[in-house]
Amino acid sequence: DLSGKLIIKAQLGEDIRRIPIHNEDITYDELVLMMQRVFRGKLLSNDEVTIKYKDEDGDLITIFDSSDLSFAIQCSRILKLTLFVNG
């Protein structure tokens, strides 16, 4: 049953990962930690990372904090994230 699940599709460069999320109350910090685990070796804990999501118009919107993240989650059951490393 995928109805209650949130799917995160995260892209870093050419690498795209699909991550099912069971807890929608994820904070921004938890998201960043999850991305560091998912992209281990490509995304380091001291990297400056910018996370953006695609909205319904196809625009890339920056996620700065947990309220941005929860808004993005409300918009779509499949959250398409693009990561930019400013390392």
Rank of each mutant, 00 (worst) to 15 (best):
D1M: 06
D1G: 06
D1Q: 02
L2F: 14
S3Y: 09
G4T: 13
G4E: 13
G4R: 07
K5V: 07
K5R: 06
K5S: 10
K5P: 12
L6G: 10
L6M: 14
I7L: 13
I7M: 12
I8D: 02
I8L: 05
K9T: 15
K9Y: 15
K9N: 15
A10W: 00
A10D: 00
Q11D: 01
Q11T: 08
Q11E: 14
Q11S: 06
Q11G: 03
L12M: 08
L12H: 03
G13I: 01
G13P: 00
E14K: 13
D15S: 10
D15Y: 13
D15G: 02
I16M: 07
I16L: 12
I16Q: 10
R18Y: 15
R18E: 15
I19A: 01
I19W: 04
P20A: 08
P20H: 14
I21Q: 02
H22K: 12
N23G: 14
N23W: 03
N23E: 06
E24W: 04
D25W: 04
I26P: 04
I26E: 00
I26N: 01
T27S: 09
T27C: 05
T27A: 05
T27V: 02
T27P: 02
Y28P: 01
Y28C: 02
Y28N: 00
Y28L: 07
D29G: 13
E30V: 03
E30P: 00
E30F: 07
E30R: 07
L31P: 00
L31E: 03
V32W: 06
L33P: 03
L33M: 09
L33Q: 09
L33W: 06
M34P: 01
M34I: 11
M34L: 08
M35F: 06
M35L: 10
M35T: 07
M35I: 14
Q36K: 12
Q36S: 08
Q36M: 07
R37S: 10
R37T: 12
R37K: 09
R37G: 09
R37Y: 04
V38M: 09
V38W: 04
V38S: 11
V38K: 03
V38Y: 11
V38T: 11
F39W: 06
R40Q: 13
R40Y: 11
R40K: 12
G41W: 06
G41I: 05
K42I: 07
L43F: 07
L43M: 10
L43T: 02
L43I: 11
L44M: 07
L44H: 09
L44K: 13
S45F: 06
S45A: 11
S45W: 05
N46T: 12
N46A: 04
V49A: 04
V49I: 05
T50Q: 09
I51Q: 00
I51A: 02
Y53H: 04
Y53P: 00
D55G: 15
D55E: 08
D55C: 13
D55S: 15
E56R: 14
D57Q: 14
G58V: 01
G58C: 02
G58K: 04
G58L: 02
D59A: 15
D59S: 15
L60R: 03
L60Q: 09
I61Q: 14
I61A: 14
T62D: 15
T62I: 02
I63N: 00
F64N: 12
F64A: 04
D65F: 02
D65P: 02
S66H: 05
S67A: 13
S67C: 07
S67Q: 08
D68P: 01
D68Y: 02
D68M: 14
D68C: 06
D68T: 14
L69I: 06
L69W: 03
L69G: 00
L69Y: 01
F71Y: 09
F71H: 12
A72W: 11
I73Y: 02
I73M: 12
I73T: 04
I73P: 00
Q74K: 11
Q74D: 06
Q74T: 06
Q74I: 02
Q74G: 06
C75I: 12
S76N: 12
S76K: 13
S76D: 14
S76T: 06
R77A: 09
I78T: 11
I78W: 07
L79N: 10
L79G: 07
K80L: 14
K80T: 12
K80Y: 08
K80V: 15
L81Q: 02
T82N: 12
T82F: 12
L83R: 02
L83G: 01
F84A: 11
F84N: 08
V85W: 02
V85L: 10
V85C: 12
V85R: 08
N86M: 04
N86D: 14
N86R: 11
